[in-house]
């Protein structure tokens, strides 16, 4: 497996918060490459005349009025939380997330 494949696998795994060991990375590398190869076929399609699009349905501007409706009770939203402190979700200490 080329180093770039391996790096791509490890980078993707890191972004997905997955821990892969070297053996797993070796195993997944060729699979990754096969998937990417499949998609690269699209690069061969001539799209010179096609208008860029932002959606396939043609639907536009689905808006709702700015009206408040009742929220859920904390007991309901927190019912499936693995761990809670009072009416807060509680998670292992993590300081400083992304934007």
């Amino acid at each position: 497996m080329a180093d770039t494949d391996r790096d791509l696998v490890l980078q993707t795994a890191a972004l997905a918060r997955l821990q892969l060991d070297e053996r797993e990375a070796q195993h997944l590398g060729p699979q990754f490459e096969a998937i990417l190869r499949q998609f690269r076929q699209l690069e061969g399609v001539d799209v010179g005349d096609a208008e860029p699009t932002t959606g396939a349905t043609g639907v536009r501007d689905v808006l709702r009025a700015d009206e408040v409706r009742p929220s859920l009770e904390p007991g309901v939203v927190l019912a499936n939380a693995p761990h809670r402190v009072g009416d807060f979700y509680a998670v292992p200490k993590t300081v400083g997330g992304p934007d």
Partner: peptide, 17 residues
């Protein structure tokens, strides 16, 4: 979503699915 925007509300009282 239609949850109210309010500063200082008790935790997790302004949420929905």
């Amino acid at each position: 979503c239609a949850c109210e925007v309010r500063f200082g509300a008790p935790p997790n009282t302004l949420t929905c699915p």
